[in-house]
Amino acid sequence: MIPDILTQYQAEIIEAIGETFVMVGISIVAAIAIGLPIGTFLYLCRVGNIMANRWVYSSLNVIVNTIRSFPFLLLVVFLIPFTRLIIGTAIGTAAATVPLSIIAIAHYARLAEQSLLDVPKGVLEAAISMGASLKDIIFKFLYVEARSGLVFGLTTSIVSFISYSTIMGVVGGGGIGDFAIRYGYQQFKTDLMLYVIVIMIILVQVIQFVGTTIARKIDKR
């Protein structure tokens, strides 16, 4: 039985969920397409590893840590000029994806690096002894052995991205979190806010369940 108030705001809720999916979806793409390579590069540049370079590692490490330590609301505001530069506007769902993608990249880069650190050193040694190229080492050895951790990390990241996306209302990004604040909190429809929170809890539970199931299934260690 769907509560009346949800039926009443059905169209707005669906639209808000769609906006959340767009923001989080683009962040996931950015995390995989840019965060994973950065995490891999960080791993390879660590002292004692095959591309060891203390200066490159330290510089990249500071950048990733700085982005991650920014209070997210301040990062959104701080990035407004940059967002305007690349999207043409600092307002709206598309503009909201910029700060969200940047935090997603930094967040997942760190988690990817941690997952790669769990790969036994011996596997890397075996790869080199077999004459593997850098590309082979990354794709045929490291990602194969770290895949479960990488999926776990991505699942954790997606849950964080959903959480981050709830404050994108400050730049007109919309989304389900913004809907809950505007209708539920600011218009005193507490029941509506609670229903939206329940929707978000269900969403996070589903993502966590799917992520954990996949990670377990592909882990043969």
Partner: peptide
């Protein structure tokens, strides 16, 4: 040049 190791160094996920 083949090489084997004390800890075998097989890929556990393959």
């Amino acid at each position: 040049i083949g090489m084997i190791f004390q800890q075998f160094n097989l890929l556990a996920n393959k």
